[in-house]
Design a protein around this nucleic acid. Structure first.
Lengths: 339, 339
DNA sequence: CCAGTTAGTATAAACGGTTAACTAAATTAT
DNA sequence: ATAATTTAGTTAACCGTTTATACTAACTGG
């Protein structure tokens, strides 16, 4: 269908080898100027585009990177993906997008698929709390397809990763509230998955450092969604009368749900209950009461992941990185500096 | 690096052709059960994965689809992409993700790249108001790489498309406000690009049908971002004293920005100013005052685009589709049904 | 004037699959 | 017993590149 190197060669009256040399500028001294110009002209006239897939076969390099994320609808991943894409583009890699929806079966399917597509490397947010696919990771290793975990990593499989320090983030959020004078600080979130566990650890550490006794009553179980935050908070406010003056929510979405619940109970944020989230989603700065939150350097995470992956592809050394989160002060925590 | 068909053949003591037949189950009658089982076993033992890129070269099919969107950070595209991905997966196509950031140069670059990668088809949200790349579209046509426009289309290039009826949407939004009793309805948005023009047309048509005189003073120029909406509205409220009782905003982000401006002027939504947006972004239902909006069937748009593209790839007939938008009533327009 | 360089180009074997055409052995029909 | 057919498999060309090697003039130096 498309024009091939052979046709170019025939029309320019040279061999395919010469054409290839012109295209890639290999051994430039081996092609005379006249020939080069003639070939170039034919290529242009015919609108020739080399087939990267044929080249890939010959060079064992596809310039394709696999990207497996949980989903793309949550506002968390797009920023990471943007970082990845921008950086990958610089090195002429394209991205194959795969979303797992948190389903390890899908993850497995895509891992196999990407192997078949002979991608040069894979960036992956693993389905958390699942070691089901460790075997597949090993197979990738055998095939020498580098892999880097992003956002989360599995301690069961040692490999490259780029993550944020969740514990430190939880610590920073809680410390911020403590320094604003709060003593009764609730934790709204999970404690039984890798991420929740770490963030809760930071929360407890901050309490400990400031000599505030940990109070189990102030742990409000909640998942990561808006609904989780909303209903958990609502139920809590309706049943307990001894409410906290501040909340550290496991993530921004949860925080937003909680804020809606708080408002519906006739309470005000931050006056009655201050609140801090985690992630710093784009919208978190745009709501009526902008959310104080622990920002994950999402864009940078993506960028760094690509850098590391490419290093690995080029057989250079690379190591895992833990990035520092950042406290972003807005109105929801009631800090005067935000007004 | 990875195991090849040749190694399988050697170990199973058959020819590569036989192995290929086992893999693809072509001419199943030409491989005896014993041989098939033996080959299958060797494949499994060695963890063999066929190279789709080698296969692609032989079959002239990569099972790759190019996806070029404006960006991935705005909440608009992810839902479309999800529709695309889910549907593509059903047919074993993978997606190469490309974002243009509205830059025609980037679009051109990616169009070329995707051609080089020999994708089987391309889905594209074209950079609007730009015909710079028409030539590239023509080249794709020549190479028989099918293309479908999604969300917007360029009338300069006739080809497949899946879009929403923007004019109808504008009409529905305005009609909704009129039926709630509003007479002074503002339009907040652009009128000089394809999309804005259509939405504004619908707005005017509704006014006309209900015998409300069009008032130029109620057109508030604004772009598509939160900031655009915020500053345009703020400026308008500060300078004009004859304010509208309702606003039809060109998109949800603009509407959110406007709402913030309205609140900061001490006015209430929907009591003082009712507001209707366009798009129905995920967050629009989660804010303190949920937004009434014209929903674009984003997920479906993605799905349909893939369906059409695959039809075209398989040389079946396919035509452009205009989907109907849907009015989603929430609190911001002040309709009692939403309370 | 001829061997040795060198510049410029061609040849052909990969890369990892698919597939049309062919073949040998076993089975069936005559 | 022989021819025809079926079954199970092989061979080899091809897809569009890259690249090591080979080749051929023209040029250089002795």
């Amino acid at each position: 269908m498309a024009v091939t190197i052979k046709e170019i060669a025939k029309i320019a009256n040279v061999s395919v080898c010469t054409v290839s040399r012109v295209i890639n500028n290999t051994y430039p001294e081996k092609v005379s100027k006249g020939t080069r110009l003639r070939v170039l002209k034919v290529m242009k006239d015919l609108g020739y585009r080399p087939s990267i897939i044929a080249r890939g076969l010959a060079k064992k390099k596809t310039s394709l990177l696999g990207l497996i994320v949980r989903d793309i609808m949550s506002s968390f991943y797009p920023e990471i993906i943007e970082g990845i894409e921008d950086e990958a583009k610089k090195f002429d890699y394209s991205l194959i997008l795969c979303t797992t929806k948190g389903n390890p079966k899908e993850e497995a399917k895509y891992l196999r698929l990407l192997r078949e597509k002979r991608v040069d490397g894979i960036i992956l947010t693993p389905v958390i709390n699942e070691q089901a696919n460790i075997k597949l990771f090993e197979e990738l290793k055998r095939d020498k397809i580098p892999l880097v975990f992003i956002a989360y990593y599995l301690k069961e499989f040692k490999g490259l990763y780029v993550v944020v320090d969740h514990k430190l983030g939880g610590y920073m959020a809680t410390k911020h509230l403590i320094e604003l004078g709060h003593k009764r600080i609730g934790y709204l979130g999970k404690e039984n998955d890798i991420v929740g566990k770490e963030r809760a650890k930071g929360y407890k550490q901050a309490l400990f450092e400031y000599n505030i006794e940990f109070n189990k009553e102030l742990i409000i179980k909640s998942g990561y969604s808006w609904k989780d935050g909303y209903y958990s908070m609502k139920r809590f406010l309706k049943t307990k009368n001894n409410r906290p003056t501040a909340i550290f929510a496991i993530c921004d979405m949860t925080a937003w749900g909680a804020m809606q619940a708080i408002r519906q109970e006739g309470l005000k944020v931050p006056e009655d209950i201050a609140i801090v989230g985690f992630d710093d989603l784009g919208i978190s700065s745009l709501m009526e009461v902008p959310l104080t939150t622990i920002a994950q350097p999402k864009y940078e995470m993506g960028k760094v992941a690509v850098t590391k992956l490419i290093k690995k592809i080029e057989h250079k050394n690379a190591r895992g990185t833990i990035l520092k989160p950042k406290l972003v002060i807005r109105k929801s925590s009631g800090d005067r500096r935000a007004f």
